[in-house]
């Protein structure tokens, strides 16, 4: 299982300045659990995924703890981290067309994922790869093993990427917008495939998305991210039924499905704060409908009824769970 504890990521930008892409995130993904990480573009959710994979842009600074099955990944050497990637933690990224090497047969790319971590022969790796392709629903996998990626549709390519990611039964899978580049009809198929395969093997999934519909379909828990911080997390049922943070509420209200009768869709006014110089208090304060005096200070993180967490001054009567983000 994956435990992320007070992780901060600073990425260098031009002019000797830094962007604080992730500003103190605490999050966990249990065995067989699917956790949805939602937020707008640029809120740091993909950077958090990169921090877990050890694939941040060069020069980035990472602090806090990333524990995988109790082992801190931050102290690993490059070679140790390589052995973890694709073996204990795997990645499925946004655009399957861009994820696969266009010059290699798809089957070989799945076999490579196995041979990166297991000392087995080519024949055996090939047989396993064919089985994996069959498991993700590639028709006639033996014959299609040798086909290059461009002879597959987007959905089929994403199935190949998933086959390669799950090749070594990882503890945790980071799925970074795995269906964004796909047709709507294919999205549901891929999501259900992901859920079926990971539940069976007990792989925990951190599903990064901006689509609350996706979260509602397949996730057990949800974490809502805003400007580099998780503002609220809890079970999908609790958070969708009774969102405590004003940002979560605004996000849910701006979903088309919730408002199919009325005409105008509510929008969240204003812009995401500049993360080269993040505001001292609550980062959502400038756009919040319920902002008040205390929001100039960092909000307390408190525990909600269902074991969730919310970081907002409106709920400071609830019991605190952690030191406030400073």
């Amino acid at each position: 299982m994956l435990q992320i504890d007070d992780v901060r990521v600073r990425i260098p930008v031009t002019g000797g300045r830094w962007v604080e892409a992730v500003g103190g995130v605490t999050l966990s993904v249990g065995s067989g659990e699917i956790v949805g990480l939602v937020g707008e573009s640029g809120c740091g959710k993909s950077t958090l995924g990169g921090a877990v994979m050890g694939l941040l842009p060069s020069g980035s600074q990472l602090s806090g703890q990333v524990l995988l099955d109790g082992r801190d990944l931050r102290g690993l050497t490059a070679e140790e981290y390589r052995r973890v990637r694709g073996n204990d933690i795997a990645l499925v990224s946004q655009d399957p067309s861009a994820s696969l090497d266009p010059t290699f047969a798809v089957g070989a790319q799945v076999a490579e994922a196995i041979r990166n971590h297991r000392d087995i022969g080519r024949r055996e790796a090939r047989e396993r790869a064919v089985e994996l392709l069959r498991a993700v629903g590639i028709p006639d996998p033996g014959a299609r093993y040798s086909d290059p990626p461009h002879r597959f549709s987007g959905g089929m390519k994403q199935r190949v990427v998933i086959a390669a990611a799950l090749a070594n039964d990882p503890s945790v899978l980071i799925a970074d917008e795995p269906t964004t580049a796909l047709d709507v009809t294919i999205q549901a198929q891929i999501l259900h495939l992901l859920r079926d395969l990971t539940v069976r093997t007990g792989t925990g999934v951190l599903l990064i998305t901006h689509d609350l519909g996706v979260v509602a379909q397949v996730c057990d828990r949800i974490a809502v991210m805003y400007a580099g911080q998780v503002v609220e997390q809890g079970t999908v049922r609790d958070v969708f039924a009774d969102p405590l943070h004003p940002y979560t509420r605004a996000l849910l209200d701006s979903q088309p499905a919730a408002h199919h009768q009325s005409g105008d869709l509510p929008v969240i006014l204003g812009q995401v704060p500049d993360l080269t110089d993040p505001p001292a208090g609550c980062r959502f304060a400038a756009r919040c409908a319920r902002v008040h005096d205390r929001c100039t200070a960092a909000p307390p993180v408190v525990e909600t009824r269902g074991g969730g967490r919310v970081a907002c001054w409106l709920h400071d009567a609830l019991p605190p769970v952690a030191q406030e983000a400073s």
Binding site: R83, V84, R85, G86, N116
Partner: peptide
């Protein structure tokens, strides 16, 4: 991006 994905697979 596929180079990042190769790293994510643990390719040397």
């Amino acid at each position: 991006p596929f180079i990042v994905y190769l790293r994510a697979k643990g390719t040397k």
